[in-house]
Amino acid sequence: MTASAHFPTADALRAVTLRDVTLRDGLQLTGKLLSTERKIALARELLRIGVPQLEIGSLARPDLVPPLADTLDVVAALDEEERHRCWVWVATPRHVERALAAGARNLQYCLSVSDAHNRANVGRDTMASLEAIPRAVEMADAAGGRVQLCLATAFTCPFDGPVEPDRVLEIVTSPLAQGTSDVVVCDTLGQASPAEVGALVSDVRAAAQGRGLVFHGHDTWGQGVANTLSAIAAGADTVDATLRGLGGCPFAPGASGNTATEDLLFALRPDWFVPSALERLIDLGENLLSELGEPNRSRAVQGARGGAMAFPWSVARS
């Protein structure tokens, strides 16, 4: 049996980079806060386990997103090698300036394709955010950094409904966005279907002019893994996820958890992800959920603890 043209091969799956975004998107909607020291320890443990990249925080207003108020302290505490594998969410040139001063070099500059969500999220319309990108890129370049173009609400907006694909492509191809290192396509509400994800990611890939392509999915409607695999088949080379499916957007009614890191890794099977790595991630997630008072949303974790111990990926119940 040959692989379907619409499904990535095993080699293609293994070649994809997973970026764990627990420390940013995963913490945005939690009712309890993690200490700065706990965040630093969590980041280092994820890197030690083998997770290739992390998103470790955001410069969103601390009064609006209190769990991320200490992001710059987390950045400053990491060493240069660790920061090389870590990303920080920004939305203005001032954010970029502050993040660079703290030592960050990988910046995810986010704007929403929908004006209504961009105003709710960062207080301005989409074009105003887009017009500021050249300055952000200039500052990052001068510091030896890089800026991703992150497109929230690329499929649907909680205020305006479906988003036209042409609107996404207009932003991707805008001269204002040239100089960004990657394009991040976000299914912010988790409402997209695999067919919709595949079609848009394919079009963005063709329009991105050699930039990398990241897919950021949510599992609100149970399509997180399926949508991510569809994005990979269409050309995504990096995918986002959070431990145990934590997360959501505080400025997008109806947005719930991200695709679970454990679920995606079980599907992708990168060379570093062996049963012992899964067990360490399960333990890490268990402690995190206990601290935050959050439920488990990972089906792979449920399966690993299902008791079928003849299966090498099964984990004994603690």
Rank of each mutant, 00 (worst) to 15 (best):
A5L: 14
A5T: 11
A5E: 13
T9Y: 03
R14G: 05
R14E: 12
V16E: 11
T17N: 11
D20A: 04
V21Q: 03
T22D: 02
T22K: 03
R24E: 09
L27N: 00
L27T: 02
K32Y: 11
K39L: 06
E45S: 04
R48T: 15
V51L: 09
R61Y: 12
D63Q: 14
V65Y: 00
V65P: 00
P67R: 05
D79E: 09
R83M: 11
V90E: 06
R94G: 13
R94L: 14
V96G: 05
L100I: 03
A101I: 10
A101E: 13
L107V: 10
Q108R: 09
Y109I: 04
C110Q: 07
L111P: 02
S114V: 03
V122W: 00
M127F: 10
P134K: 04
G144Q: 11
C150W: 02
C150H: 06
C150R: 00
A152N: 06
A152P: 01
F159D: 15
G161I: 13
E164N: 13
D166K: 04
L169T: 07
T173R: 11
S174R: 03
L176N: 09
Q178L: 12
T180S: 07
S181Y: 13
V184A: 13
C186Q: 02
T188S: 07
Q191M: 15
A192G: 04
A195D: 15
S202D: 14
A207R: 09
Q209T: 10
V214L: 06
G217F: 05
H218I: 13
H218C: 10
T220I: 06
L229F: 02
I232C: 00
D237N: 10
D240G: 04
A241Q: 09
G245F: 01
G254R: 08
T261C: 07
A267Q: 13
L268A: 05
E279W: 03
I282A: 08
G285K: 00
S290H: 15
S290Q: 15
E294G: 00
P295E: 14
G306I: 02
P312W: 07
W313I: 11
